[in-house]
Simulated scan of single mutants.
Amino acid sequence: MGEKKQEKNFNFLNVNRMLKLDIKELITANVHLGHYTNEWCPFMKPFIYSKKKGIHIINLHKTISKLNRYCNLIKDIVASGKKILFIATKKQAKFIVEETSKKYNMPYITERWLGGLLTNFTTFHKSICKLNTLEREKKTGTYNSLSKKELLSLHRIKKKLEENVGSISAMNSLPEAIFIVDIVCENIALKEAKKLKIPVFGLIDTNSDPRKVDYPIPANDDSSKSIEIIFHYINESLSEGLKLRENV
């Protein structure tokens, strides 16, 4: 499914704003540095500016263009009250993605992909509902009347649920879209999303196949500095989307 055709599905508030992106800032964060030329995916050619010392250099003008375009889509999704599932299990991205997701109450996966999370969501949803119920009961004081044995049992159940679905407890239905950092690393999640025709935003390096992503953002996905600066703008979009949602 092409970009333009796919974008029509996100016909929400459609309030567009150009981000104030500084190309020098992106260079300082190494956003432009791709993989070695012998590791590239030929379909990334439109996003590559040149080669330097055996490394492909990403065209940052394309990065800025895509980021501006897709951040507006992200903002519209959030403004509509929908959820975006963020996925990043590589160490350079985990903390950044977790911090952003928690801040804006978005579901996320940063430890390992739970096989069937999307394609067998009904099963996972039961666990999410159970965890949320336990959280509510704890806050309302329901636990106070339980014996020590019953409390211990509930704590064990709750701990197990938190380990399995704690990071996606805000996801009561399939997400409107998913955002992946490194589609090569997260190929199983990508396949599940594509099978269900869930739109995919992806941070893609020069070794990635952009055809597999609905909304590719070309950037260095191996550098924490690069990921951090990209997510600075993602944060802005999420924040604006929530503000728009509150004013509807």
Rank of each mutant, 00 (worst) to 15 (best):
G2R: 06
S239C: 07
K159A: 12
K102V: 04
K126S: 15
K158C: 01
N187H: 14
K148N: 13
F179V: 12
N9F: 13
N172W: 11
I198M: 02
V200I: 10
P175N: 01
K5Q: 15
A219W: 02
F12T: 04
C41A: 07
V248W: 11
R136F: 15
T140R: 07
N9P: 00
L196Y: 11
L196E: 08
V200L: 03
H155L: 13
G54K: 04
E137V: 06
G166P: 05
E240H: 12
I55Q: 03
K197T: 14
K158F: 02
I204T: 02
V200S: 01
N68C: 00
I128G: 06
N16R: 08
F121I: 02
I109Y: 01
I234P: 03
G81K: 04
T123D: 14
D222P: 09
S224L: 00
C71H: 02
L26T: 01
E150L: 12
K91G: 05
K159E: 09
K149E: 15
L131W: 09
K191F: 07
N220Y: 09
K160Y: 09
V78Y: 05
F10A: 07
L118H: 00
F43T: 15
W40I: 13
W40A: 14
T28R: 10
A193D: 01
K82S: 12
L26H: 02
D205F: 12
K102Q: 10
E7F: 01
G34C: 05
A93C: 05
K138G: 08
K102H: 06
L21G: 00
K197P: 04
K83Q: 08
H155Y: 11
K20L: 12
P210H: 14
E3N: 13
E186L: 04
R17F: 01
I217F: 00
K62Q: 05
I57K: 06
T119C: 02
F43I: 12
N72R: 07
S239I: 05
G2K: 08
K4R: 13
F121E: 03
E240M: 13
K139E: 13
N247E: 15
R156G: 14
R112W: 14
I188H: 11
K53C: 06
L19K: 03
N14P: 00
S147I: 04
K195W: 04
N14M: 04
L26W: 02
F43L: 15
T89N: 13
N187E: 15
I178K: 00
N172L: 14
K126E: 15
A189V: 01
N144A: 09
L131S: 07
E236G: 05
S237K: 10
I183A: 06
G81H: 10
L244H: 03
L203A: 04
T100R: 03
A189S: 11
E240G: 06
E7N: 05
L242G: 10
D214G: 10
G166C: 06
R69M: 06
Y104E: 10
L33A: 11
